[in-house]
Simulated scan of single mutants.
Amino acid sequence: MSKLAVKPQKEAELKARQAAPLRAPSALGEEAVKNASAALNGVLADVFALYLKTKNFHWHMSGPHFRDYHLLLDEQADQILAATDVLAERSRKLGGLTLRSVGEIARHQRLLDNDAEFVTPRDMLAELAEDNRRLAGFMRGAHELCAEYGDVASTSVLEVFIDEAERRAWFLFETTRSNEA
């Protein structure tokens, strides 16, 4: 068989694999997979949005506390980014799909972007604190839904991320407090 005859056969196999469904087997049932994956993807979109906002503020930080705030936001952004892969893979392990593009993230995110040319350091930190609190709330909603379906692995993952979001919110809140007794 010539190399030319093999190439169309390989292309046909590749196209067949590309068209194959991505549904992994799941013991949770079709409704659970659909709803839990949707909840996880909503959280994932918000996590991506928060990551980018945190980096935006990290890059545009200024003022007398620049170094401390710059490093704090960099540390928080790293933690937020680490959650993205875990959330996306959790959705896939369930048998669902996950986000595919920035456009899809934008369609699902509930946290607002901040495209302002200038934001004061205090306002940056306060906005991120509120966003982290809201994210923890969204995660609690996803946790409740996953618990209804007996998806203990997703609830476990979300519990860790809720704690991390609350810790970030706490640090940001404490950073913005005045020196009053």
Rank of each mutant, 00 (worst) to 15 (best):
A19F: 01
G29P: 02
S101G: 07
E148N: 06
N35H: 05
T120Q: 15
F48I: 10
A20V: 04
L135Y: 08
L44Y: 07
A45K: 01
V102Y: 03
A27T: 09
I80M: 04
N114C: 11
F118L: 14
L97I: 12
L52E: 09
Q9Y: 12
E144Q: 09
S37T: 08
A142Q: 05
A82Q: 02
P64L: 13
E148M: 05
R100G: 10
G141Y: 07
R140M: 12
V47C: 04
A36I: 14
E117C: 10
N132L: 12
H58K: 03
F48N: 15
T176K: 11
K7L: 15
C146W: 05
L128C: 12
R177D: 04
E104F: 01
D74E: 15
A82F: 00
N56I: 14
L28G: 02
N35C: 01
D85I: 12
G63K: 07
R107C: 05
L44H: 04
L111G: 02
V157N: 03
E148F: 01
L40P: 08
D113K: 04
R168W: 10
A181D: 12
T84L: 10
P121N: 11
D74I: 03
D131A: 15
L112M: 09
A12D: 13
K53L: 14
Q76D: 15
A12T: 13
L14I: 12
S156F: 03
D78T: 13
T54E: 15
A136S: 12
L158Q: 06
N114R: 07
Q9P: 00
L112K: 14
